[in-house]
Every structure is written in C-alpha cells, then in structure tokens.
C-alpha cells in the first residue's frame, strides 16, 4: 500500500464530494453554512492540487491540470459571492446565485474527471 496514494485519493474524493454537496443545495445569502461548504470545497481542492506538485508521470500532470481547473472555478465562485455580498448594495440576488452555482458546477465536472482518472490509474496498477 502506498500511503501517498491513499492520502491523495482521499483528498481528491473529498474535494469531489464537498463540491457535489454544495452544488445540489440552493444558495441563500442568509444561510451561513452554504458559504462554509464552498469554503471547505475550495480548501480541500487546493490541498489536492499542491499534492500533485512535482509528479513526473503523465497521469500526475493531467490530474494536476484537472485540479487546477477545479480551483480556478471555485475561486471564481468565491470571489463572485464575496463581491456580491459586500461590494454591492443589492446583496446576493438570484442572478448572482445562479452564476455561483454554474461555476461550482464546472468545478464539479473537473473534480469528477479527477476521480475518473484516479479510478483508471488504480485499475491499471495490477498489484
């Protein structure tokens, strides 16, 4: 058993599940815990990205790319939310909530790709 692989798989799956959990809920400006879900998804996704630094294999490089995509989308979602909640007078409107959801949906797609790649890699190793 490779400890590095276990830890990495843990973070990849956790990033995907947190992202999924956030995506299926609905965004309410008053619901404080929605924001915490997004925050957790972003932090776990960042850790998963850093863990792929310095991997020389082709699979490692592709996994790094997919988690970078997920990070980018989640950061964009967090920035939109932060700006809408504090920078505007209207607060979190339905339109903004929709764009946050679609950004996190994109991140979910990237995370699912990561999980699929991880499964493929695991299946290919016949030990």
């Amino acid at each position: 058993m490779n400890t590095e692989k276990v830890v990495f798989a843990f973070f990849i799956l956790l990033a995907a599940t947190l992202n999924f959990g956030f995506f299926i809920g609905t965004v309410h400006a008053t619901a404080h815990f929605n924001a915490i879900e997004l925050f957790a998804a972003l932090v776990i996704s960042l850790i998963a990205t850093v863990m792929k630094f310095g991997d020389r294999t082709h699979m490692g490089a592709v996994l790094l790319a997919t988690s970078l995509v997920a990070d980018l989308q989640l950061i964009a979602a967090a920035l939109v939310w932060g700006y809408a909640a504090t920078g505007t007078d209207t607060g979190l409107t339905n339109a903004v909530a929709a764009s946050i959801m679609s950004l996190s949906g994109g991140a979910l797609l990237a995370n699912i790709t990561s999980v699929v790649l991880l499964v493929i890699e695991t299946v290919m190793v016949r030990r």
Partner: peptide
Amino acid sequence: LVLRRLRAPLIALIVVWSLAVLGYV
C-alpha cells in the same frame, strides 16, 4: 524537485490558514 519541496510548506499554509478562517466564521 523544487515543486516537490514546495508541497509541504504550501499544504501547511493552506491548512493553518483555512482552520483559522473557519474558526472566526
């Protein structure tokens, strides 16, 4: 090698920062 060496400090930074932020929230 350089990227690999950056892993530990970056992960430490992310973990401690996020825990602190989460605490205040």
